[in-house]
């Protein structure tokens, strides 16, 4: 009896083993899905004004021109703002896939700024992966204007401002990306004792990809303590389109923001969308591969 049983199993085993495999590749495919980092949550490293979830790939240099015209509601005499311009020229370099450093020079207040951007967590798919990306951005700004009173002793540190942001965001789908970034900004010196030294806020941003090469973007900063002495500062809101052409990304936008670096647009925005204090602007990003990523 037992012998028969064993024989039966033996025959069964041989039969099943020699049965034709329906799919050869399934023999070598890993059942586990490999961990894969989510990329291309934005076309650019800036949503419009603010930093986005996206870091440059290691070894890539990004030359950025941020150009903004004057207020549209200034009318025909100023050619609807096109007679004036504020610009920031910047260079960003990615040391690694997670670490980017950058410098820039803005025409507004002749400010120079530098920043460090580090990807702490990277959204990924597969086992043990994070559902969101978390990025730290820290920067310093240096006001380049001549001191108002040159008679008294002035310190270099009086020119400085600092900002810190923690960007938390997720690419929900191929077409939708959203982010929120708690922001803290400190100004070393302010004109009056009533003025703010510390500014708190949160940036909200996102994009909706319309076609492969076109996306709608929005970038808003809620400034918690907008009142500064007698002035009530506004929350900067920018709405635009990202257009990608080969090696360039153009970010055409409308905004009420003042200035083109974090210090300026978070603390000095006075334009009111409701009153038509809107400026047209564009960012141009051109990337250059400095280091071949395949030869690390």
């Amino acid at each position: 009896m037992q012998t028969r049983l064993i024989l039966f199993f033996l025959i069964f085993y041989i039969k099943s083993a020699s049965a034709q495999q329906p799919d050869l590749l399934s023999l070598v495919e890993d059942e586990k899905q490999p961990k894969e980092f989510v990329k291309n949550s934005y076309k650019s490293t800036r949503v419009i004004m603010s930093h986005s979830l996206e870091n440059l790939a290691g070894g890539v240099l990004d030359f950025r021109i941020l150009h903004r015209f004057g207020m549209i509601n200034e009318g025909a005499y100023q050619f609807f703002g096109l007679d004036q311009a504020t610009i920031r020229l910047g260079l960003d370099y990615a040391v690694t896939d997670r670490l980017t450093v950058g410098i820039g020079r803005s025409s507004y207040k002749k400010e120079v700024d530098g920043f460090v951007k580090y990807k702490l967590l990277w959204q990924a798919t597969g086992p043990k992966s994070s559902p969101v990306s978390v990025i730290y951005v820290g920067g310093t700004t240096v006001n380049g204007l001549k001191f108002e009173d040159e008679e008294v002793e002035n310190y270099f540190t009086s020119r400085l401002g600092y900002y810190h942001q923690l960007i938390i965001g997720r690419k929900f789908s191929e077409s939708l990306t959203l982010q929120i970034a708690p922001t803290f900004l400190h100004l070393n010196i302010v004109p009056e004792t009533l003025n703010r030294h510390d500014i708190y806020g949160a940036q909200l941003g996102g994009r909706i990809k319309l076609t492969k090469r076109l996306a709608l973007t929005a970038d808003y900063v809620f400034v918690a303590n907008g009142k500064d002495g007698d002035v009530e500062y506004k929350h900067p809101l920018s709405i635009g389109f990202d257009i990608e052409t080969g090696g360039h990304v153009f970010q055409l936008h409308f905004t009420n923001a003042t200035g083109v670096n974090e210090r300026a647009f978070i603390t000095e925005t006075q334009g009111d969308w409701g009153k038509g204090d809107i400026q047209f602007g564009f960012n141009i990003s051109r990337v250059f591969t400095i280091k071949d990523k395949r030869k690390k």
């Binding site: 894969e36 890539v60 990337v287």
Partner: peptide, 27 residues
């Protein structure tokens, strides 16, 4: 790339992940 050959039947199959292609330029 994953590939397998069955020498008995002559079947040959290969599968590659598109995302695993590496370019010199990340863009």
């Amino acid at each position: 790339g994953l590939s397998i050959i069955d020498t008995k039947t002559g079947a040959i199959e290969m599968s590659v992940l598109i995302k695993a292609f590496e370019f010199k330029k990340d863009l």
